[in-house]
Structures are given as C-alpha cells and as structure tokens.
Nucleic acid binder design. Structure first.
Length: 411
DNA sequence: GCACATGAAGCAGCCACAAAAAGCG
DNA sequence: CGCGCTTTTTGTGGCTGCTTCATGT
C-alpha cells in the first residue's frame, strides 16, 4: 500500500501535483484541480511507486513501476542488469481528464472504473500538453516527426545559446521535456497552422540552487496548446483516438527511450535552430498568447503530419538574464521534470558520475556572472569622460549639461 | 472582489566617437 | 602570408520615456 492521499487521507495517492507539492488520489486530484482554471493548469504526474514522495519521471517496464529520478538512479544507476531495464519517460499532464479517459490511458497503472464523474465532462478537452508531453506529442518516431527547437529572443543571443549549452552539457537532455505549447490562433487565420508558443512569465524561468534537475521551475513556464483542432486540423475525436492508441504515451508522453528517438535529436544533440523563419508549419513564439482566458483545449497531441519547429521567445538577454539566471532553455525542461538519460549515453552515468557532473555544473554556475562585463576598458574610459546632454553623448565642443570630469550640470 | 490611481522598477533606445574588426590591393 | 591602408562595425554610460508590476484606495 502506497502513500495516502494528502487531501483525503484515505485513498492511495497516485498523482503528484507539483504546484501543490501534494500527493493525491485520483479522485481528489480531479476534485482539487477542477476547481478553477488556475488549478486545472497544475502540472501533475504519477507518483513514484518506490519512495511515494516524489514525482515519477520514468516507468520501468521490467519492474512495472513508476520511479522518480532518485529512485531510478538508485535502482538503475549502478547495476548493469537493472540499468538495462527498459524505461520510459513519464511526463506531466494538467487539466481535468475524465475518468473513462484516465481508465483507458492509465490502464497499466490501475483501474479507475469507479471514478466517472459527469462534472468533468470536458475531460480530455482540458488535458493540456505540458512541457514534457510536447516532446512526445510532437515527435514519436513512428510518426516521423521532427522537432527542432528554436531558441529565439528576437535575435538569438549567445547568452541563451550558452545557457542552452550549459544545460545540454550538464544534463544531456534528450527530449524537449519541457514545453507546454500554446496555440492561440483565430479561426480561419491564414497562419492557423502555426501554433504559437508563449511563456507568460518567462522571466520566471529559473534554475534554483537545490538540484540540477529539480532546479528547473517549469511551473513558471505555462505554455498550453489551445485550439488543438486549428492547430493540427484534427478533431477532438481524433485526438481521443490518438489517446486511445497512444494510451499513457499520449497522456504522459511516454515514449520508448531505449531506442534512439530521432525526433528528439534536435534537443539531444543540442541542435538549436537559432532563428526560425516565419513559416506556416513553424511554431512561432514571437507572438504571445494568453493562457488565462479561453477554455484550454489542450492535448497531449500527437501531431501526425509535419515537421515542426518550436521556437521560444521571451528569453531575454543578459540584461535580464538575472531574472532567470541560468538556463534560458529551462522552458524546454519539463515541469521540473528531470531529463531522461538514454542508456548508453549519459544514461549510463554512475551515481558518482552524476555527482561529478552536478558538481561541475554548480561550480560553473557559481562562477557565472551576469554583471555587465566591460570588454574594452579603453572604451569605458572614454565614455566615462564624455560630455553629455540628457545622458546622450554630444559632439566635442557642443553644449553639454553634464561633464563627468567636473560633475557640472547646466541645469 | 473589482476598478482605478499611484509609485516603483525594469528595460530599450539614443547619442558621439575611439577602438576593433573586416576588407582590399 | 604578411603588411599597410581604408572602411565598417562595435561598445561605452547617463538619461529619458515607455511598459509592467505591486500596492493602496
């Protein structure tokens, strides 16, 4: 018997809500998170069945258990036999799925047949793709999808690239485990095929100090798919069909991670499309959308047809980098979801190796500075003695209102 | 709880010009 | 390939105006 629900204290907790930091049974999960639009956006995932306290990040097919990162490491990190276990990443969901949908989708976990609730009829219509599920919804290999991550901030500044590199270096993130895609396209829009991403509060993209993986605060990254139909040109029934077929894969974005997923090469290989041209199939983040108004029609979407590029905007340059401090691509990391290491690559890290990587990351992070750097002292020296008018440089000999040398002002 | 006003904070852009970088023969 | 010259690009800081956010009424 696992951990009891934090809310009712009676049922076994199944779901972990990151926003509430609570372990909930499915019934309470549904009740709590159907209360309002805000709570529906809470990111939830399965609860680790080993420690019963942390959100599960992977599911071990051999042990038939959902495991958090730590338990996964402990269980699969060292032993060669167990490390070969076939595992699947588990991503988060939000919204208020109907019980029947849950029952279908989570059939491998448990049976929810007694949970049907007409109050939650929106069901899968409110299922949102959170950061994690995007990677899967966009790119199951069998769908021949390709996901390019374009990190754009107007112009793709190197700071963001550096941050992306840092993240890639430290985690070798194999998937786009982090996006909650939003679509806010008016019906009939010419560019209706181009879903738009936004990340309200992108400034909040931040890495906390606690842990390399737990650092990624994706609660601040709130990207939702809306208007799924317009986006993908697929009816909801179709999407349900996709869920049916995809099962938990569709909901949690689980995918087979024992095999190299070509769809994730864009991220796993660190491929970053610096700037994405406007294109109908592109997911442009240039225009922001609000996730707080329209009913969220979000799906762990499997997009079946085209290669799409996902671009992120809202990443600010160094001047504002202090706000998110670390990884400009934290939006690409799932709901605080630790990245998955494919076996044979970083996934074969031992615990010591991981500790070493974490240590290196932290040292590098500590050494990182976001203060303004003076690249040319001579230019600074020159600027320091330049006369100005209202802060602007003036030509030599022109009238000025501020002279740094004598601190005189004409006003 | 909502609407509105106010203040604080953050940010981009502007300016001239020397230094650095790039281009060319 | 290296040199010298010319042209182009870059970076520097204080201030303003704008936007966003928080707080109070």
């Amino acid at each position: 018997m696992g951990h009891l629900c934090d809310f009712c204290g009676e049922q076994r907790s199944i779901v972990y809500c990151r926003s509430d930091a609570a372990c909930l049974c499915l019934s309470c999960d549904r009740n709590v998170h159907s209360a309002n639009a805000l709570s529906r956006r809470h990111s939830r995932t399965l609860l680790c069945e080993r420690c019963n306290s942390q959100p599960a990040s992977v599911r071990c097919a051999e042990e038939n258990m959902s495991l958090c990162q730590n338990c996964d490491w402990n269980g699969h990190g060292g032993s060669t036999s167990s490390s070969a276990h076939k595992r699947q990443s588990i991503n988060c969901y939000s919204g208020c799925p109907s019980a029947s949908e849950l029952s279908r989708i989570w059939s491998f976990v448990l049976d929810f047949t007694s949970m049907d609730d007409p109050n939650c009829e929106r069901g899968m219509g409110l299922m949102s793709i959170d950061e994690n599920s995007v990677s899967n919804c966009w790119g199951p290999s069998e769908m021949n999808n390709k996901v390019d991550v374009a990190v754009s901030s107007g112009n793709n500044d190197m700071e963001n690239m550096e941050k992306f590199d840092m993240w890639m270096e430290s985690s070798s993130m194999p998937t786009l485990n982090a996006m909650q895609c939003g679509v806010d396209q008016p019906a009939g829009s010419l560019d209706s095929t181009a879903p738009k991403l936004s990340s309200p509060g992108t400034k909040g993209l931040e890495l906390c100090e606690d842990d390399l993986y737990e650092d990624f605060s994706v609660a601040d990254v709130d990207l939702n798919f809306e208007n799924y139909d317009e986006l993908f040109g697929v009816s909801q029934s179709h999407s349900e069909h996709l869920f049916e077929n995809g099962g938990i894969d569709s909901l949690f974005g689980m995918k087979d991670i024992t095999g190299a997923d070509s769809n994730c090469q864009g991220s796993s290989g660190g491929k970053v499309t610096a700037k994405q041209p406007a294109c109908s199939s592109a997911v442009s983040g240039d225009s922001t959308m609000s996730t707080k108004t329209e009913p969220i029609i979000s799906y762990a979407a499997r997009q079946a047809n085209s290669s799409r590029s996902l671009s992120f905007s809202g990443f600010t340059g160094e001047s504002s980098a202090g706000d998110y401090q670390d990884c400009g691509v934290s939006s690409m990391l799932g709901m605080g979801e630790p990245p998955w290491y494919p076996p044979g690559t970083e996934g074969s890290f031992t615990s010591a190796g991981r500790d070493s990587a974490v240590l290196r990351y932290r040292e590098k992070k500590k050494a990182r500075k976001f203060d303004k750097k003076i690249r040319y002292a001579s230019r600074k020296a020159r600027a320091d003695v330049r006369r100005r008018v209202k802060g602007r440089f003036v030509k030599a000999g022109d009238a000025y209102d501020y002279d740094p040398l004598c601190q005189t002002r004409s006003y």
